[in-house]
């Protein structure tokens, strides 16, 4: 199962990004192989529709779970439609590796 965590940088030590559509990087985590890959979000500078584009990307990547700080209404609708699980974490200052560790447990 593929999980995406929104991240502000391209390694596990970077801070967890609380935005979904405008996050800098997506951390892709494969639960079977325990491997992580980082994908740059190319649409985080667009003036509108960033959430929609990010949600479309999630569908393309066949992600089943997205962990972020908040989801916009459009992204929420789309992710809902494609049965992608949304998880909201609102703790401040946590790192991507903290979340990965929790997931591995």
């Amino acid at each position: 199962m593929m999980t995406v965590i929104t991240s502000s940088g391209n390694n596990k030590n970077s801070l967890f990004d609380k935005r979904f559509g405008r996050t800098a990087w997506f951390c892709l985590y494969d639960e079977e192989t325990k491997k992580t890959t980082f994908i740059e979000n190319t649409d985080n500078e667009t003036s509108n529709g960033a959430g929609t584009k990010a949600a479309e990307k999630m569908v393309e990547l066949k992600v089943e779970k997205v962990i972020s700080g908040d989801f916009g209404p459009k992204a929420k609708d789309l992710l809902d439609k494609f049965n992608i699980q949304m998880v909201i974490i609102q703790d401040d200052g946590i790192k991507v590796k903290d979340i990965l560790e929790k997931l591995k447990q």
Binding site: N83, Q85, I89, I99
Partner: peptide, 26 residues
């Protein structure tokens, strides 16, 4: 549609395709 975990305080949805009903984080 939204649930809150009392242990780690994360909020999440459980879409139809997910069979596990426990908290996705902890």
């Amino acid at each position: 549609k939204w649930f809150i975990c009392n242990d780690c305080h994360s909020r999440f949805t459980i879409p139809k395709s997910v069979s596990k009903k426990s908290c996705p984080i902890c």
